[in-house]
Design a protein around this nucleic acid. Structure first.
Lengths: 248, 248
DNA sequence: CGCTCGGTTGACCGGACTCAAATCCTGTGG
DNA sequence: CCACAGGATTTGAGTCCGGTCAACCGAGCG
């Protein structure tokens, strides 16, 4: 759906985050803002923005709302391979491959900007800092994906869930979505199960274990972490792979 | 170790594979070959090329031999998050981040080319097809990493191992390392266990199961797949995510 | 010859899964 | 305002896949 409201301020999250990745020149900020405003869209929850196998011809930047990337096996088993949070990019450079390998679905109402390939390439050519920011975004995304591999392959259930909470929390921080020691967390337990490779039932029990240990509160789509260090330690979380954010 | 022998021909695997990713202009091929020849190195098995936390200041391209990317938890649990095979790139754009999030270790003797960042950036600026090829490499790498997520999170032990065999096999094909229905497979069962998120003991039993089913032969560092379709079907392997290779 | 490393086997255990049902919540229509 | 439907969360019981621990074998090597 083409967006019609006045959401100029939404671009701020993207700009702020990109500036942490790579300090942008003034011209870069202006150009990016302009490109975003030209291609504003909105989507409701549960909509597929991209489906596995589609060709992709644009780059999308998320202004608000949560999405996730996921893949499904023939028999229906599903894995959420990552979340996409406000300020993050959906698929820089995905247009270079003939088809995309995974689907992207909204978890909440979402506002995003769509930049057509040709427009995007002109942008990249026009400003070096901007080009580097998008490359950083891709490299960072890659690093996060690797951390998910060890999360899925080697951590125990409680550690997996705790780790996911820590990561999301830290990724929300630079875009100003942390409020005190809480943040919105608009994801069902089924999604959480598919993101951690657990069954819904076991995920539920694991969450209760985290609650019982006083490590988190999760209620009404709101996550509270009373003692972040304690949760990180329970998760064996080491923030190195998100390092870019720590500068902010 | 700086390489001294005459390995000009080694660059061919890289060129051939890159040409599949993105057809290179003649000048691009020449420039890339030149850059490779300028920075040839060799390493023995079990050497760390990069260690988690290091800053990276160059791009490496593998000419021969296998390596793997891995991460380790405080308590020693290890996850191999990917293999790096001949013709593949170690860490394009990793220099944009202040430190690398994972280690890279050789599994066999390896020949590789190291291209310093400044040299690499000049190369990228000089030829568009070359720049796109490296971007493709990064995007593809990202897609593979996502497939590993579903492998680790949602497939059963036998499927995991079968899937890994299928993927490696298909990745070796474009660089001409498949011979009949066999390929070299210079990896210990411990490494395979860490790549699939299984224990060594269970991995061993899973391999025996695959052998008993007639799906593979694995002996003397040599993998034979008598019926690739059968193995793919046991693995729930769908090659879409490696699509670039299928064109070759 | 003895050591080490990789592969193999056996016995046992337990974490996570499955199946099934109950409860809670929310939005909707009467 | 209430009844109801559908989805999300929770609980219980039983099972099994994959982990752990421990021992043994075989090949290469100093």
């Amino acid at each position: 759906m083409r967006a019609t409201g006045n959401e100029g301020s939404l671009a701020q999250a993207v700009i702020r985050r990109f500036n942490l990745l790579r300090p942008l020149s003034e011209e870069a900020v202006a150009a990016l803002e302009q490109a975003i405003l030209e291609g504003l869209f909105r989507a409701g929850p549960g909509e597929d923005l991209v489906v596995e196998g589609d060709p992709v011809d644009s780059v999308r930047v998320v202004l608000s709302g949560w999405l996730f990337r996921h893949k499904t096996l023939e028999d229906g088993r599903r894995q959420i391979v990552n979340f996409i949070l406000p300020g993050e990019t959906c698929d820089a450079y995905a247009y270079l491959l003939p088809a995309i390998d995974h689907s992207i679905t909204t978890a909440t109402p979402v506002a995003y900007a769509e930049i057509k390939r040709s427009r995007f390439e002109k942008l990249m050519a026009s400003d070096r800092t901007l080009a580097e920011a998008f490359l950083c975004e891709t490299a960072l995304n890659n690093a996060i994906q690797r951390e998910w591999a060890i999360n899925l392959g080697r951590r125990a259930a409680l550690e997996k869930v705790a780790h996911l909470f820590c990561e999301i929390y830290e990724r929300l921080r630079p875009v100003g979505l942390i409020d005190g020691n809480s943040c919105g967390f608009p994801v069902t337990q089924m999604d959480l199960a598919d993101a951690t490779g657990l069954s819904v039932v076991h995920l539920n029990r694991t969450i209760q274990e985290l609650r019982a240990a006083g490590l988190i509160t999760l209620r009404d789509r709101m996550l509270t972490i009373p003692d972040l260090d304690a949760l990180k330690s329970a998760a064996l979380f080491s923030p190195g792979y998100l390092q870019l954010y720590s500068k902010g």
